[in-house]
Nucleic acid binder design. Structure first.
Length: 582
RNA sequence: GCCCUGGUAGCUCAGUUGGAUAGAGCGUCCGCCUCCUAAGCGGAAGGCCACAGGUUCGAAUCCUGUUCAGGGCGCCA
């Protein structure tokens, strides 16, 4: 409809300019926007005000000349000039009513478009280290990423979803020795447990499992651990020492057994957790695979060959400051270990090598300092940094009423995503997570999410859907016939204010979806659905659908069927169910 | 010190390619079920859009400065 109106206006302006013998002014676009107030019609354009200055005319006069030349359209009843020079369009009933068959015929695909033209996008999100269960912060990234992926697919992109598994590196080694120490404890060797090791109960569970399967196989003589200075102040040194001893004493195979026991157990737990949350990945990408393929080394080599890497203090540094980062960054530490950054470079290059024209990363907001260095590396390796969009998600604070709940991964004191889901349910969790703009801090109130009352927007929307289903059920019980083709003939009977309002809101759905996708803002869907549910509930409370008069009844049923369809489509993108009864 | 975010009703927040009288929920107050689910609807009250300048037909929105709050600035991940 916007397109249609834009064409009307543009044609009129062109004709006007021709008559006056004026050239088309440069650099203007005719804007067609929805009005906020129904008394201003359905759409308005500010074309006259934009052009007035360049043409040296008063906006209202110009507007009048434009309106005079507008072609007749079956979708437009009337045009008015208002305020400083707005041109308001009042759409015909025909324009409004066409929407219902459009929605019903399109069904689940209503709102879809080919804006993305099948472009391949890779979206990577959550990617939490497999060193423990997901907590509520990860949940937000999961809900946001999954909804965004659905949104992008809805507007015609071919989006693949990926989880990057940090299954290499020091943190995983620390997990392994955490498990090992708990295991030794079970074997009767009581040793101090470093505070920076992983404290959670799940570590003991993994240790118990190993103990059950392997008994005392991984016990070593106590004196071998005498090299660890438990009084050592620098806990990082202490951990490194423990790792070294464990690797040496247990051998590669032994250490791998413990390492993998931890990795596999935790990873499958994460996988299951996300799956239950409706978050399904196309690919789980292993960091180890980058090392095994020598991909990381190749990238470092390429950077070296092109002079982007230098040696200082026995470490290798990447000159990221040449490409906008505030300082250079280490890729290989003085002890020969590659940093996570080195893997990250390789991983991002790898993404582009797989043929994605756009990649989206969703990171916690605390990682924002990493954007510059990753983009710098992409530039240095000849990739287009603008093809990477990094979206930051702020942390979520959890409240139980007024009480703020603690969050700390290492200490093991945190509420897991699983606990949250069990307490408030998947639907409420998915909805609440995306109800705020992602870069906003989110206060997640457990009490509110759980409340089965009108405080809770999730139930409010789902309730609208359930009510429609209930009406349809009643219709059958009362043996009222509903015949689609016939019903669509009677749509012109829908003249009530509430019906017009509902139609107007329904018609906004496709453009809302497109904007939400373009701006990466699924929260717009939440607000839209709230509006739509509100329009429906008002309508429901004011008018009856199952009335004696057959033609009006059928027309109304068509309208609420369209409404039901749009609620379903919106909720599906958010990963929230649309229950038939509540 | 530098860099991100943010400051809109009592509370939680929508609202940026500048548009007409700034919106919603919650909370408060007042109404609505012999009728398709009251998990609902209607109405009222509630605002210097942090502050000060600037840009223009027009600013919550764009620019500059100030201020307050949260976060980030490791050979950690």
């Amino acid at each position: 409809m916007k397109q249609h109106l834009r064409k009307l206006i543009t044609d009129s302006i062109n004709e006007l300019l021709q008559q006056k013998g004026l050239p088309l002014p440069q650099g203007y676009t005719v804007q067609i926007e929805r009005t906020r107030d129904a008394s201003h019609g359905d759409f308005f354009s500010n074309a006259a005000m934009i052009l007035a200055k360049q043409l040296g005319q008063k906006p209202r006069e110009l507007a009048a000349e434009i309106v005079d030349r507008l072609a007749v359209s079956e979708f437009v009843d009337n045009c008015e000039i208002a305020g400083p020079g707005f041109i308001n369009f009042f759409l015909s009933q025909k324009a409004h009513l066409q929407l219902i068959p459009d929605i019903i015929n399109a069904g689940d695909s209503f709102g879809q478009c080919d804006h993305g033209k099948g472009e391949a996008i890779l979206i990577e999100y959550v990617s939490a280290n497999p060193t423990g269960p997901l907590h509520i912060g990860h949940g937000r990234g999961a809900a946001y990423g999954a909804s965004l992926a659905n949104l992008l697919n809805t507007v015609g992109y071919d989006t693949k979803q990926e989880y990057y598994v940090n299954d290499a590196g020091r943190q995983m080694d620390i997990l392994a020795i955490s498990v090992w120490l708990r295991y030794l404890d079970l074997c009767g060797q009581q040793l101090p447990f470093p505070e920076k090791a992983y404290q959670g109960d799940y570590v003991r569970e993994i240790a118990a499992q190993i103990h059950q399967q392997h008994h005392d196989d991984f016990v070593i003589p106590l004196h071998e651990l005498s090299g660890v200075d438990w009084q050592q102040h620098d806990v990082e040194v202490q951990l490194d020492k423990l790792i070294a001893i464990a690797k040496q004493q247990l051998g590669d195979a032994g250490f791998r057994t413990i390492f993998n026991a931890g990795l596999n157990r935790i990873l499958s737990d994460i996988r299951e957790d996300l799956q239950e949350f409706g978050v399904i990945y196309d690919n789980w990408f292993s960091e180890q695979s980058l090392t095994e393929d020598n991909f990381v080394n190749n990238c470092i080599k390429r950077l070296q060959d092109s002079g982007h890497v230098y040696e200082k203090d026995k470490a290798l540094w990447f000159r990221s400051s040449e490409y906008g980062d505030e300082k250079d960054r280490v890729v290989v530490r003085d002890n020969g270990q590659k940093t996570y950054f080195a893997s990250d470079i390789a991983y991002h290059v790898n993404k582009f090598k797989r043929g994605f024209s756009k990649t989206i990363d969703i990171w916690g907001a605390d990682h924002h300092g990493y954007i510059a260095r990753v983009k710098a590396a992409l530039i240095a390796l000849g990739e287009n940094p603008d093809a990477l969009d990094v979206l930051l998600v702020q942390f979520a604070n959890l409240y139980r009423g007024k009480e703020k709940l603690p969050m700390s991964t290492r200490s093991g004191e945190f509420v897991t995503l699983r606990e949250l889901r069990q307490e408030v349910g998947n639907d409420a969790a998915r909805f609440f997570y995306v109800t705020r703009k992602s870069e906003q801090h989110l206060d997640f109130d457990l009490e509110l999410a759980k409340s089965q009352s009108n405080d809770n927007p999730v139930y409010y929307i789902q309730y609208a859907h359930a009510r429609i289903c209930s009406v349809l059920k009643q219709m059958q019980q009362r043996h009222y016939r509903y015949e689609q083709e016939q019903a669509l003939q009677y749509l012109n009977l829908l003249t009530e204010t509430h019906e017009k309002a509902l139609l107007a809101t329904l018609s906004r759905y496709p453009e809302m979806i497109l904007k939400a996708a373009e701006d990466y803002e699924p929260h717009l869907i939440c607000f839209y659905l709230r509006d739509l549910a509100n329009d429906f509930h008002s309508y429901y409370n004011t008018h009856h659908f199952l009335i004696e008069e057959s033609r009006l009844r059928q027309a109304r049923i068509s309208l609420i069927l369209a409404c039901k369809q749009v609620i379903c489509n919106g909720l599906r993108i958010l990963g929230v169910s649309a229950p038939e009864e509540m």
